[in-house]
């Protein structure tokens, strides 16, 4: 059966958007001639030419500000910040320029740009090429933060992000680039940003995650099923806007909810999940908790990094402990 690879979904979404709208442009470090260091944009330079697909200096602030300025003046730029860890270099342009423009201009105009960035740990890239910066930006009104978990979602959500009139930070987990999905399950229906998805239904406990964490949750749910625990799995898909309704509906059903975040416990989006359910669903709660990474930088050495990240084993063990059941062997 034909399959769609995550990185090909990214390429396809940009390709279709470039073809559909002359205003769409793509630029970043090594995205054009080289086709991207994660091989997400090959062939686009050859197809659309140097005016619409081009390489830039290693200047994250200039790249992002150029995207901002061109978006204010009518283009719809898609830029790549190679690693999400480089986003701090571009912070002023994203946070102070792009995200605030619509509101402080008195809604004179908006900033239709997409910042793509590869994020996430597990690749032995160390503390400064492995972070998940989504939560840094979840706190910024005016910015949408998208974090897909599957090739089909990567395709649909990136197209929706490029079509969106607002600035969007689109996060691509490095460990997902080579994930393949059967093509028949790839829908072509338009999706709206800000809608979580129930990817597996269950009655006993809700597992909430994004990106690679969703696959881990599905695997954990399969193992929990073998001991009779039926886990529901929610893919948040966007960190901002933040879908309260899907969380609360699931909590009302399962009464137990755990947020699994590949990122530091303190100040992470998992804390926001717990805040939402505590604030709006207190009467439905039997138990809610978080699984996240320790509050220290991401280590390099494989045994250290593996132990640092919340994986399938951690999720299964934690759910069994909180539910008071024997873990599956």
């Amino acid at each position: 059966m034909p399959t769609l690879e995550f990185r090909e979904a990214i390429r396809q979404a940009i390709d279709e958007s470039l073809a559909a709208d002359e205003r769409v442009i793509l630029f970043g470090e090594d995205v054009a001639v080289a086709g991207g260091v994660f091989v997400t944009t090959p062939g686009l330079y050859e197809k659309y030419g140097p005016e619409r697909v081009f390489d830039t200096p290693i200047s994250e602030l200039a790249i992002t500000s150029a995207a901002y300025g061109s978006a204010v003046c009518g283009l719809r730029p898609v830029i790549e910040i190679m690693f999400g860890d480089f986003l701090p270099l571009a912070m002023d342009s994203i946070v102070n320029q792009a995200a605030k423009f619509f509101y402080i201009s008195g809604e004179q105009g908006s900033v239709p740009l997409v910042v793509r960035a590869a994020v996430g740990a597990g690749g032995r890239f160390g503390a400064i090429h492995s972070q998940n910066p989504g939560t840094w930006f979840q706190n910024v009104p005016g910015l949408k933060v998208v974090a897909p978990s599957t090739p089909a979602d990567a395709l649909a959500l990136l197209k929706a992000s490029i079509a969106d009139d607002n600035p969007v930070l689109f996060l691509e987990h490095k460990r997902l680039y080579s994930v393949k999905q059967e093509l028949e399950s790839v829908g072509d229906e338009p999706v709206s940003l800000g809608q979580a998805r129930v990817v597996r239904e269950g009655l006993d406990v809700t597992l909430v995650s994004i990106m690679k964490g969703v696959g881990d949750c599905l695997e954990a749910a399969a193992r929990l099923s073998s001991i009779g625990v039926q886990a529901e799995v929610i893919d948040l898909r966007t960190l901002r806007p933040f879908d309260h309704d899907t969380l609360l509906a699931s909590l009302a059903k399962t009464n137990r909810l755990v947020a699994i975040e590949e990122g530091p416990l303190t100040g992470g989006w998992a804390g926001e999940v717990l805040a939402v359910v505590a604030e709006h669903g207190l009467h439905d709660i039997d138990d809610v908790w978080r699984l996240a990474t320790p509050d220290h930088p991401i280590p390099f050495s494989p045994p250290l990094e593996d132990a640092f990240l919340p994986g399938v084993d951690t999720i299964v063990a934690s759910v069994c402990e909180r539910l008071g059941v024997q873990a599956p062997r």
Partner: peptide
Amino acid sequence: GIVGGSIGAATGAALA
């Protein structure tokens, strides 16, 4: 309001 921000903004505008 951030010193230098205008330089980035105009650079992007020039692109368009």
